[in-house]
């Protein structure tokens, strides 16, 4: 900063001296007015200039010192305070919002965990219930199936016995009609049993 200013001022001083040369070279200046030379070098005007410089500068200093600068300073200070205040409030609001967000997230997480736990529990309960019911139903079904199977077996046995009787009767009738031989029921039965044994496939069926 100081350096650049020094450079600037030396540049300006150069410029000023160049201007000064022009001024010196100006024939109008060299001729001068009736008093001769620069009015700046007329010492008789110096006292009045010094006097009014002191008066006006002192007046300016007192006014700037007492009125102008304190007024500007107070406005700048007010603004600074106000900004600080606003910044502080904004920071506070941001902090509050942050804590609210944290609280909200915690509530949400809690609720989520609770819901998960409840779902898990109720699912487990439902599964157990369903399994119980399933088992009961399976048992019931098994007994029903067993009974039905027994009934079917019984019916088949009956049917087979009946079939044997039919076979015996038809064997007696066939023997009588074909060979004219009268065979007893007992003999017929024996023959049917033997035939049945020879045809296990039928029995199987």
């Amino acid at each position: 900063m100081a350096h650049s200013v020094a450079v600037k001022t030396s540049g300006l001083a150069l410029k000023a001296s160049a201007f000064g040369l022009i001024v010196m070279a100006s024939p109008a200046l060299a001729a001068g007015d009736s008093k001769g030379g620069l009015p700046q070098l007329d010492f008789t005007t110096w006292p009045t200039q010094i006097f009014w410089l002191v008066v006006s500068f002192a007046l300016a200093y007192v006014l700037m010192w007492r009125v102008v600068t304190p007024r500007i300073a107070s406005v700048l200070e007010d603004r600074h305070d106000r900004l600080d205040d606003d910044m502080q409030r904004a920071r506070q609001a941001a902090d509050e919002a942050e804590s609210m967000r944290v609280a909200f997230e915690k509530t949400l997480a809690d609720a989520r965990a609770e819901a998960t736990e409840k779902t898990r529990l109720s699912t487990a309960a439902a599964v157990a219930e369903a399994e119980k019911k399933n088992d009961a139903a399976a048992k019931r079904l098994a007994t029903k199936i067993g009974k039905a199977e027994a009934k079917i077996m019984e019916a088949r046995d009956n049917a087979l016995t009946e079939l044997d009787d039919v076979a015996v009767t038809s064997a007696i009738d066939a023997a009588a009609a074909l060979a004219g031989v009268k065979i007893t029921k007992t003999d017929a039965k024996k023959a049917v049993k033997a035939a049945a044994k020879a045809m296990p496939a039928m029995e199987q069926n």
Partner: peptide, 30 residues
């Protein structure tokens, strides 16, 4: 000493008055 109020003195005073008035008026509304 001759301390006549001159054209120079007038502009010194004007410089003070104009600047002080400007700076005061500008800050009037704060």
């Amino acid at each position: 000493f001759d301390i006549s109020f001159s054209n120079s003195a007038l502009f010194m005073m004007l410089s003070v008055l104009v600047s002080v008035t400007y700076l005061t008026m500008a800050m009037r509304r704060r």
